[in-house]
């Protein structure tokens, strides 16, 4: 509770944020290229992006919530719900795909609204509120499917994760998932930089009381952030289902990865600082790290340890940088 409200929200320095996440990513990707030189080929880079796309999109959504000072732990469950619901509702009928996609987004928006309303009006801290919806949504998804995959996803749905256009000019191949990714990032960027929403989100995250006094609609800002996050989770679910098909654990553990990605990219937890590039390059860095550890053939378990250590170091380094700047 800062005694003197700062009315002017802190503007992030977009250049700096871009540099931090980008540098980590470039270093990690260079390391990948050393271990496995053909990752420098455009085809494999596109494949890397295709596989990173779900986490990237999820991180962009999570960033909205983090900017406003909250967390969204329900996204993994929402992604799982999207996969299971798609498979049950479409049930192998390609004509149903588009209508079902609409339904999935409606479900996502509903979960986002619940999260936002509970946080904004019932005053439940977001970490608890979204923990609750995580349990709830996961339980609903499992109860609906009976605990195991059901139904079937037709090819036009699977294309979101599998279709790759070959012989594309300049880049060689282009996966549909990468197109979806670019579209989503562009919209998310526009939302924060092309509208008034970005400033409001930063203001709310920095100091909600001050933002309110300055006339910012705090509750609406919060609720929109959760809705955006849920929409990103549904999109992630669609890509995951497309990539590898139906499973009951499609979104498991993604929520913490998305939060970690934003933080590695330089976004500040509890709000006030960050840009869409924090999410993008943070997620790319994290995914490059996973890929690198895989390629190096380390035992699976130690990969967790290294991930943990990197997380601490990345955040520690950001802290240290910021302190020096002050």
């Amino acid at each position: 509770m800062t005694p003197i409200p700062q009315v002017a929200p802190l503007r992030p320095s977009p250049k700096l944020a871009l540099n931090a996440g980008l540098v980590i990513f470039v270093v990690l990707y260079a390391a990948i290229a050393v271990v496995q030189p053909n990752y420098l080929e455009p085809g494999l880079f596109m494949n890397f992006l295709r596989r990173a796309a779900p986490l990237l999109i999820l991180a962009c959504g999570q960033l909205y919530v983090i900017l406003t000072g909250g967390f969204d732990l329900s996204v993994g469950a929402v992604a799982t719900l999207a996969v299971l619901a798609a498979s049950i509702l479409i049930n192998g009928d390609p004509d149903a795909t588009w209508a079902v996609l609409g339904t999935l987004y409606l479900m996502g928006i509903a979960v986002g609204l619940v999260n936002g309303l509970v946080v904004a009006f019932l005053k439940v801290p977001s970490i608890i509120a979204t923990l609750g919806t995580m349990l709830l949504v996961n339980g609903l998804a499992l109860a609906w499917s009976g605990g195991a995959a059901r139904g079937d996803l037709p090819e036009n749905f699977r294309n979101f994760g599998r279709l790759v256009w070959r012989d594309v000019w300049l880049i060689g191949s282009l996966p549909l998932a990468v197109v979806v990714l670019c579209g989503f990032v562009a919209i998310a960027w526009w939302g924060l930089n092309g509208t008034v929403y970005g400033k409001r989100a930063l203001a709310v995250g920095d100091n909600p009381r001050a933002a309110e006094l300055a006339g910012t609609p705090v509750a609406a800002t919060r609720i929109i952030a959760f809705v955006v996050s849920s929409i990103s989770a549904v999109t992630t679910g669609i890509l995951l289902g497309g990539f590898s098909g139906v499973s009951v654990n499609a979104g498991e553990g993604l929520e913490l990865q998305a939060i970690a990605a934003c933080v590695v990219g330089g976004a500040q937890l509890l709000g006030g600082r960050g840009s869409i590039w924090s999410a993008v390059f943070g997620a790319l860095s994290l995914f490059a790290l996973f890929t690198l550890l895989n390629l190096m053939g380390l035992p699976q378990a130690l990969r967790d340890s290294i991930q943990g250590a990197i997380l601490i170091v990345a955040v520690g380094a950001t802290m240290w940088r910021n302190r020096r700047r002050i």
């Binding site: 967390f71 913490l256 939060i259 970690a260 933080v263 500040q268 937890l269 509890l270 378990a301 130690l302 990969r303 967790d304 340890s305 290294i306 991930q307 943990g308 250590a309 997380l311 601490i312 955040v315 520690g316 802290m319």
Partner: peptide
């Protein structure tokens, strides 16, 4: 360091080892 990240990190390290 934000406690969520710090303890998530140490937790991952312990779990991995």
């Amino acid at each position: 360091i934000n406690p969520l990240i710090a303890t998530l990190g140490t937790g991952l390290i312990i779990q991995g080892v």
